[in-house]
Amino acid sequence: MIEQKYGPQTAEVEEMIERIRTITPKQTKALKDAWKEAWEWTRGSAWSTTQEAVWVVLQHAGRDKIWSDAWVAVVQDGALKKNMGVAIEATWDAALALVARDLIPPELFNSLYEPWASAMEAKPH
């Protein structure tokens, strides 16, 4: 049996980690811009509610440890070391969406993943 360190979407999370290692300043700027636009469009409150809803779903599914491991790899060991600034938020949201993808409606997934997808030209599998 193949280990699924980050849940059913392990391959996608690992791909994200690799993309962060090679992110360019141009991609970082595009990611910041995409996330800021999405945040402003929702006025932040809807965005925060979406994040919280996904986190609750992960906890109920027993994936809080998986999310914690993904957060460390994607954000702490990846984005923070690359000094990505506001782009860290977009990276965090995309990783959260990937870990919970099979547990949440497509609308929630898309709202969190879209800034990453548009800036990094990444399409989920």
Rank of each mutant, 00 (worst) to 15 (best):
E12G: 11
D64G: 01
I17V: 15
E37A: 15
W71K: 09
K36L: 11
T28D: 08
A87G: 13
V72A: 10
S45A: 07
M84S: 07
L58W: 03
E52S: 00
G7S: 14
D64L: 05
I66Q: 13
A100P: 01
T22F: 08
K81V: 06
M1P: 14
D77L: 13
G44P: 02
E40C: 07
A90E: 07
F109I: 04
N110Y: 00
I23K: 06
P115V: 01
I88C: 13
W47F: 02
S45M: 06
W55Y: 12
D93E: 10
E40R: 13
M16Q: 15
V54P: 05
T42D: 10
I2S: 15
E3Q: 15
W55I: 02
W39R: 13
N110K: 06
W35N: 09
T49F: 01
E107C: 06
F109A: 03
S118Y: 02
M1L: 14
A30S: 13
V74D: 05
A117I: 01
K123H: 11
A61L: 00
E15Q: 15
T49Q: 12
W39N: 10
W67D: 01
W41G: 06
A53Y: 00
A11W: 14
T24E: 11
A46R: 12
V86W: 08
I88G: 14
S48M: 08
I104M: 04
K5L: 14
G7H: 05
R21K: 15
W41M: 12
A70S: 12
L80T: 07
K36P: 02
